[in-house]
Design a protein around this nucleic acid. Sequence first.
DNA 1: TATTGTTATACTCTATAACTATA
DNA 2: TATAGTTATAGAGTATAACAATA
Lengths: 161, 161
Amino acid sequence: MPKTPPRTTSSPRPAKSELDHSRLSHLLGFQTSLAHVKLQKAFFSSMKDLDLRPVEFAILVLLAYNDKANQQNLCRSLSLSAPRLALVLDRLQERGLLSRERSDTDRRAHHVVLTAEGRRLALEAERLSHGMEEDILAPLSQGERQILGELLAKIVRGARA
Amino acid sequence: MPKTPPRTTSSPRPAKSELDHSRLSHLLGFQTSLAHVKLQKAFFSSMKDLDLRPVEFAILVLLAYNDKANQQNLCRSLSLSAPRLALVLDRLQERGLLSRERSDTDRRAHHVVLTAEGRRLALEAERLSHGMEEDILAPLSQGERQILGELLAKIVRGARA
DNA sequence: TATTGTTATACTCTATAACTATA
DNA sequence: TATAGTTATAGAGTATAACAATA
């Protein structure tokens, strides 16, 4: 008979008609996935005027602060596959937000660079992004937000204890 | 000219050939999305023998600890759309892991109930899930893991400060 | 040979509307 | 009229293999 470990969170009783999650709540993957749904909604409602999806936003902001980024860099930074990135870049390029320029030092690689309009939009979007998650983070104090960000960053960075 | 707030994390210098993420790191949505990629990989490698995807796992475990769950309950608990849930349940039902039974009190609703095999698999999967994220969480102390889980749970629960 | 990037394909997930059967 | 669930469809995300050009 498999040992049943104690409940990890203390939810006195689930709200009426709702289900008891206590056997899932030990999984960070479960929590991050639900949190992510909320954060995505906030993102889309903030960015709808700029018509930017999360990946597109991230690419523009990365490019605004990184010269000479090639597609490999972007793939690794955003955990994207190369084919996926190529398609996203196609769309941004069609919108006139960036261009791909062959590197002189390694003619296999493309530097991805923002156009003037791309840079303008990147900065506008970055400005908008501050406060974007305010409603979602309302249950947390400023200190808690800080800690949460740092703990997640540690996981993303990975490795060693 | 838009104000450029200070960098939120202190990454002295990005590793060579990698990009500076400091203008994205203030966004929880960015961190959770990258963390989630890692957690997903860990999930699939742990669960591949049981052939369970994250949603399927979550449904089985919820059902193992909640009698009389209907599809609305499951949708709300897992942030799934009703059409999506119906498809996932179809697959689990075809595998003989659960059945849908019309409620006597409201004949529109279906109670979703595990078969004996479904319950066996649910408990097996739950057992496997402890330790599943160990490698990913290695950078965090036990206390940090606890805190991270609680902060995410607060966000998921939502509302009031 | 290995690497950068592209194309093509197939599968999963998500969102929506239209439908049925019950209430 | 509203709710529980289903079906169908289109869009977006992901994974993989095969390819061209360059190193």
